Computed example of a mutant assay.
Amino acid sequence: MQIIATFEYSNFIEIAITELEEKGITAIYAVPLDLRKKEPRLLDSIHRADGLSFIDKGMIFAFMLATIGASKGFVWQGGPIIWGIVGAVLGFLLGVVLNWLIYLLKREKNQLQLKKGKRGDVVLIVTCEDHQVSVVEDILWDHRAFGLAITK
């Protein structure tokens, strides 16, 4: 049987490996994952999307300000069509700028957490007999495994 677990690289994984070796399990394979070296792309393509959108708030503000501009345009000089278009453009720009500022603030916060020296994750693969599965599983969970999978 193979048990696959993920850990954050720390002393806990070293202790877990030592305990597994003390239990007589020697087929242990640990693979550290590389950290991202480049900043992720900001704009999405049609085939790749990360859920980050800059125009969603822009469209909402464009709708709101276009409605207000069109209704006030009946009173103001220029008419409802002109003021509706002005409201839509201003609302869209306001929403995009607001989204951009929120993105910059979140990015600054995330960059503080994800400094270059941060440790990555480790995938641990343990091959053992069927009767040892519960012992291995308990050891891995006790040493802060993120996730665990058992395969035959």
Rank of each mutant, 00 (worst) to 15 (best):
G58W: 00
F92E: 03
W76G: 08
I46W: 07
A62H: 03
L43Y: 07
G117P: 06
E14I: 02
I60P: 05
R107S: 11
G87T: 02
M64D: 08
G91I: 00
N99S: 07
R48W: 10
V96Y: 00
V122T: 00
V96D: 00
L90D: 06
V31F: 05
I85Y: 09
G51F: 06
G58Y: 00
L114F: 12
D121T: 10
I82E: 05
Y9W: 08
I13H: 03
D56Q: 13
I85E: 02
K106Q: 14
E8A: 12
L20P: 08
K115S: 15
L114M: 12
R119N: 15
E19K: 03
L105F: 15
A5Q: 03
L114E: 14
L20H: 01
G69T: 01
G95P: 08
N110W: 09
I15R: 14
K109D: 11
K38G: 08
Q111L: 05
A27K: 15
F63E: 02
F7P: 07
L43N: 04
L114A: 14
I28Q: 01
A27T: 11
D50V: 02
G69D: 03
T67L: 09
A5Y: 04
F74R: 12
Y103W: 11
K109C: 04
F61R: 05
Y29V: 07
G117A: 06
A49I: 05
I46D: 12
G84L: 00
I81C: 01
K115P: 09
I17N: 01
I60Y: 14
V31Q: 03
G117Y: 10
K106S: 11
G69Q: 01
S45Q: 07
K38S: 10
A16M: 01
Q113G: 08
L112C: 05
M64R: 09
K118M: 15
G117C: 04
E39P: 09
A88W: 03
G79F: 02
K109G: 07
R41F: 10
L101I: 13
A88I: 03
Q77K: 13
A27P: 10
L90W: 08
A66M: 06
I55Y: 14
N11P: 07
Q113A: 15
E108G: 12
A70W: 13
V75L: 09
S71M: 15
L20T: 01
T67H: 08
A49S: 11
T67D: 06
K106D: 10
G91Q: 00
S71R: 13
E108Q: 10
L112I: 10
F74T: 09
P32H: 04
T67S: 15
G78C: 00
K106N: 13
N11K: 11
L94W: 12
A16N: 05
F63N: 05
S45C: 03
F61H: 05
L105S: 13
D121E: 06
N99P: 09
G73P: 05
I82G: 04
G51L: 03
I17M: 00
D121L: 10
I46F: 06
L98R: 13
E22W: 07
I82L: 03
A49Q: 15
R119L: 14
S53K: 14
P32A: 01
I13R: 01
G95H: 04
L52M: 05
E22S: 07
L20Q: 00
E108L: 06
L101T: 12
L42W: 05
